[in-house]
Each structure stands twice: as structure tokens, then as C-alpha cells.
Design a protein around this nucleic acid. Structure first.
Lengths: 342, 342
DNA sequence: TTTAAAGATGACAGCGCTGTCATTAGGTGT
DNA sequence: ACACCTAATGACAGCGCTGTCATCTTTAAA
């Protein structure tokens, strides 16, 4: 049978409470006692029983990662990042894919947290940006950390991590302009994603800086999907004065646009430059490879998760929680889809 | 505070044990008692405390999904399938990405199961096919279900699910032959994946059936990666008598091959037909879209997970476990990369 | 009607830990 | 020497459930 706290205590010649103190790093144990206990733990290969722990301390150590995002790579990266931090802190991770457009998504999440007895939630867009969801969580006093698109910090009791899509989009558009483009189309993703409007604003800002008139007809609304790209290519390429460049809101759209351009025999980047966003693995594998903006998803996830855990600890001990918000700026990656000579 | 079994018992006017019986569907409760208890549960919105349950029953209800697979889509699909079944059965899922090529992967897994106190493991290739890993798990009496490539059932106390890559590869190759190809190259993935050899064997069998001589020089060894495809295209296309078709072991390789062919100005499918495997989302999005074989990953995951849960139940009650192995055959999906008129 | 067997329910210990509070040991100052 | 304080440790209840076994109730057979 597995070792218990009792067997460790006996071997070390101390009470179980002292073992508990060592395991929980309470720090009020004499150095030599500490050593004896640690040795006993090692010898018996003791691992604290999670269930007993949770039960006794009336607090679980399971976080939930809730997502609704079509990008498998993004999710996998997020998961890895969250997991890394969870492991280091003895937390577990529960995965919960869901449908953000569902009628009662807020209730679903609350119920889920309840029934799975979660300590807290990691929310990525678009869930992290839905007022209704946040409101319900707040009401039930559920802890969560948000990853969201934005460029300015704001005050909040709960932790959050920002991704500055505005600046990244600005840089991409500037790059396009630097290649000589003046007619630059913008293909948007779901408007429910704040990233869409942030990226659009970055695009607009760059145009303005270059004194290029913003042309409403060059904006196409769609979803973060390959299909949107294909359809948009169709629309854009049959315009009387067609754009010479396209800034797609993500790589999927960009890949679709590329596909659509191909269908029409349009050469990329000579006849049409295409830029994406997110640096998905396949953005390197299209022909030609896509210019894009790369965000350190893994790091973002880690940062968010450790903030959440710190918050939970502070909450438990009722101590002060310093909400040190990190901001990440996706970096421009130039590839052949926007530049001939590379 | 949240309702406990005690409060439910009081409200229903029964003992806590009876509530426990209802919650666990033991079936030895009178219909009207049952109704009273159920009503009390609903009224108090009672959810059993997982920690207490696990502690008292000395068994956790957390499964682990261990994977080392470069295909994000595959993993996401697997996860969803596993999760669906877990939810229905009140199990939780712990995700554990790992590196199969690591020296002490077996030990890592054993330790992980230990420290996270897992009930069982879901193993997908290549881990499900590594004798050393399985051996270690067996030694520690850890329960697991395997998803693996194979075409014949075999006896095993532990559950497993088969994916018949042989037949699927056979069909793909036959399709290529039907298009008039006689010079068909095969680009292999990691040999550690049994799927690689299964697919190669399917390829060989189809050639044989069509009386086409197997040509060793048309076989290229590589990894399941885009890069392998690019490099292979280079090699194949500079052969004196170059192949007219390529069967790539997965879509990534196929996409790479397509990319490589493009670089050389080779037209697909007219000058070179390319088939992949796995039906990854991007196989639809290359230009031209890839012919491939589609496996119902989600179903496979579900099947595997429910087998595992059944096994665990049987083990707990020491009853007979019927190892009903399911076999899945990936289906041929024909797209333009192998066929001009479509 | 009596009696045994089966069915339904309850009492209670105990799973392995943490929190609370009591106790003991080890200084410090007078 | 004493009281006095702090640091280190231990005793013990109890977290919310399940398993075991005892008890009570019903049903069917004699």
C-alpha cells in the first residue's frame, strides 16, 4: 500500500502534524527535524493524498481551462503553459471546451465550477471578454484569470493578462505600407472577439500615420476561418480597383485568401500581398509562407496561471493580492507572402 | 455553504447512507424513498463532494490522457472524445503531454500516475506501442487503455482499440493505381509509430494485388513532419525516372511534398499526384486540397475511454470484464491532389 | 399463523489529511 | 533562582463521504 502521513511520522519519530508542516512548507520546523522527516518521506516515497488534503482543508486544487477557440494549436499551447505552472504548484487542470455562442454559457460555466469543485478558472477569448459570463462568475464569487486583448491596464480585483493586438496590427500594417501598398484590405474575424476590433484599430492607426485614407469598402467582415478567406478573396479580387495587399485577422483567413487568390491565378506576393496573424504552424507551410504576428502563447498562459494561483493563495490567507498585470505584444514575422526578396 | 449529504438526509428524513445509495444508484432503495431523496437533492442543489468520496472509497475518479503527438488537431479531437465520456461517468481528465523519446519516459508516467493518483490512463500512439512503457505500467498494476494501429485482435486483460491503418493505406494506394499510376513513392513517418509500418504494408499489398513491382528506391524514411515532405519532394523529383504519385504517411508530410513540388514548378495533380493520411483540417486547405484517409478520432477516443471505465468498474467490483475490442477503419477521402476532374 | 429468507434502512467507524488549541522546550531578563 | 515569552511540537476533532454490519420490515413459503 501507499505510504501515508502516519507511516512517515512513525518512521521519522514525530507526530503527523509535523509531517504535515514539512509537506506544506510551513517553515516552523527545526532544521534537524525537517531533515529527518524529509528523509522518511523520500524513503517511503510518500505522496500526500490529494483527496484527504482537499477534504480536510476544504479547498480543491483543480483549475479549469475553459475555451472556445477554433485554433487547435493555440489551445494546445495554452494548455501546455497552464499545465507547466499547475504542476509546479501542485494544481490539477480540468479542460472544458465549450460553445461561447450558446444561450446559457454563463450558467453552464457556473454549474461546471460547482460540480467539478474547481478552485478557479482560466479564461481565454472570447469568454474572457463576455460581460455576461464575467458577471455570473462574479456573482457566485468564482475566481478566474482573464487573457484578453487590450492595450491599457485597468483596475480589477481579479488578475488578468493583456495581449496588445493593437500594436501588433499596427506593425503589420506598417510593414505592408513599407512594401509600397496603399490599397490594403482588412478581413475581420468574429466581432465578438475583441481582438478583431483591436486589430482593426491598429490597422486604421497605421493607415492614418501614413496618411492613407481609410476606405470602408476594403473592410470585410467574417469569421476566423479558412472559408472567410476564400470568400473574401473572391470579393476583393473582383473589385474594380482591387487591393494590392490584404491583412487577414488570423492565419486561417490568410490561408483561405491565399487559396482563393490561387484559384484565380493571382500571384502572391507579386499581384497580392497577404499577411495573417497568430503564427500558427501552418503559416510557415503555405506556399508562399505567410507574414504574420507571433504571440508567445505558452508564456501568456503561464503568466495568467501563476497570477491566478497567487490570487487564490492570497484569497485563502486573506492577505493582500498585488495585481501585477503583464502585457504581451505579438511580434511581426515577415515571410514571402508579403515580400518577394527574402 | 454547499449542501452536504447530511443536510439532504435530514430534509428527506432518511439516513445519510440512504442518500449515498441514491447518489450511487445502488438500486436497493424503495421507489418512494428514492423520490423523496431525489427531491431533496434537487431542492438543495446537492453535489457530492469529490474529495470526500475519493477518500472514503479509496479510489480516485481521474483519468490521465498521455500523449506525444505533433498533430494538434488529433489531440484536440481525442481530448474532446475522452472528455465526453468522462463527464457522463463522473470522471475527470488530467492532461499530460510528454516526450516519448525521453530516456525515462516509462518512469515518468509511473510517477505521474502515482503523484496525481490517477485511476487509469488513455494511451495513444506512439506511447501505446512502446513495450517498455507498457511493461512498467503493468508492473505497477496501473490500468490503461491503448489506442493502436493494427488489424487483428489479440487477447489482453486490458482494453484496447484498434485502428486499421493497413486497410486504409491499401485503399489509398488502390485509388492511386486506379488513376493510372505505376510509379508510386511512399514517404514514411517515424518508425517508432506502428502506423508507419502498417501503412507501408497496406501500400505494398495494394501494389502486389495490382502486380506492380515493389521498388525499394521509392520508399523514403522520415518523420511525420512538413519538413520531411519538403525534403522528400526534392529527392523524388530529381530521380532519373521520377514517380508520378506519392503516398505520404500523413497530411503534414503530404503538405510538405506539395510545397516542395510547388517550389520546383511541378503541377499537382497533373505532374504528380499526392495523397496524405489523417484528414487534418488543413488537408482541405492546401492548394489543391489533399486526398487523404479520415479517421473518426472523436469516436475512437470515446470508445477507448468507455472501455477503460468499464474495465475500472469491473476491477473494483472484481467482476468479469468483457474485452470487446472495436476496430476502426479510416475512410478514403478523394480530393484534387490525386484527381484532376472532381 | 408462524418462520425463514430477502429487501430496505440505519448506526458507526474510518479514509488521510488539516486546523485549532494545548503542551513542552528553549531562551531572556531580573 | 524565578517568572515570562517565543518557538517547536503534539493531541485530537472533524472534513463528507463509503463500507461493513446490524437492525428492522416486508414477502413468501410451510
Amino acid at each position: 500500500m501507499a505510504a501515508t502521513i502516519k507511516s512517515v511520522a512513525e518512521l521519522a519519530g514525530v507526530s503527523i502534524k509535523t509531517v504535515s508542516r514539512v509537506v506544506n512548507k510551513e517553515g516552523t520546523v527545526k532544521p534537524d527535524t525537517l531533515k529527518r522527516v524529509e528523509q522518511a518521506i523520500a524513503e517511503l516515497k510518500y505522496t500526500p493524498n490529494k483527496a484527504a488534503r482537499d477534504l480536510a482543508s476544504n479547498a480543491t486544487s483543480v483549475l479549469g481551462y475553459v475555451y472556445d477557440n477554433p485554433n487547435a494549436y493555440y489551445i494546445i499551447d495554452m494548455q501546455k503553459g497552464i499545465l507547466d505552472v499547475c504542476r509546479k504548484n501542485n494544481f490539477e487542470l480540468l479542460i472544458h471546451p465549450c460553445d461561447a455562442s450558446s444561450e446559457n454559457i454563463a450558467q453552464e460555466l457556473v454549474d461546471m465550477v460547482d460540480s467539478a469543485q474547481l478552485a478557479g478558472l482560466v479564461l481565454s477569448p472570447p469568454l474572457s471578454e463576455m460581460p455576461d459570463v464575467l458577471h455570473h462568475l462574479n456573482e457566485k464569487n468564482i475566481s478566474y484569470v482573464r487573457i484578453l486583448s487590450g492595450d491599457s491596464e485597468f483596475s480589477s480585483t481579479l488578475p488578468y493578462v493583456l495581449v496588445n493586438d493593437f500594436k501588433a496590427a499596427f506593425h503589420i500594417t506598417e510593414h505592408l505600407i513599407a512594401q509600397g501598398h496603399k490599397h490594403i484590405a482588412f478581413i475581420a474575424g468574429e466581432v465578438i472577439h475583441k481582438s478583431t476590433t483591436e486589430r482593426l484599430n491598429g490597422y486604421k492607426a497605421a493607415l492614418k500615420k501614413a496618411s492613407i485614407l481609410f476606405d470602408e469598402s476594403l473592410i470585410i467582415e467574417g469569421t476566423y476561418s479558412f472559408e472567410t478567406g476564400v470568400k473574401s478573396a473572391d470579393v476583393l479580387l473582383s473589385m474594380p480597383s482591387r487591393p494590392t495587399a490584404v491583412f487577414a485577422c488570423n492565419d486561417e483567413i490568410a490561408a483561405g485568401t491565399l487559396f482563393g487568390a490561387r484559384m484565380k491565378g493571382i500571384d502572391v506576393p507579386n499581384d497580392l500581398a497577404i499577411a495573417g496573424f497568430e503564427d500558427s504552424p501552418f503559416s510557415r507551410q503555405t506556399f508562399p509562407p505567410l507574414t504574420t504576428a507571433s504571440q508567445p502563447t505558452n508564456e501568456i498562459a503561464q503568466s495568467a496561471t501563476s497570477s491566478l494561483i497567487q490570487y487564490l493563495r492570497a484569497k485563502k490567507t486573506k492577505s493582500q493580492f498585488d495585481n501585477l498585470t503583464q502585457t504581451f505584444i505579438p511580434q511581426l514575422v515577415v515571410r514571402r507572402s508579403t515580400k518577394v526578396s527574402l
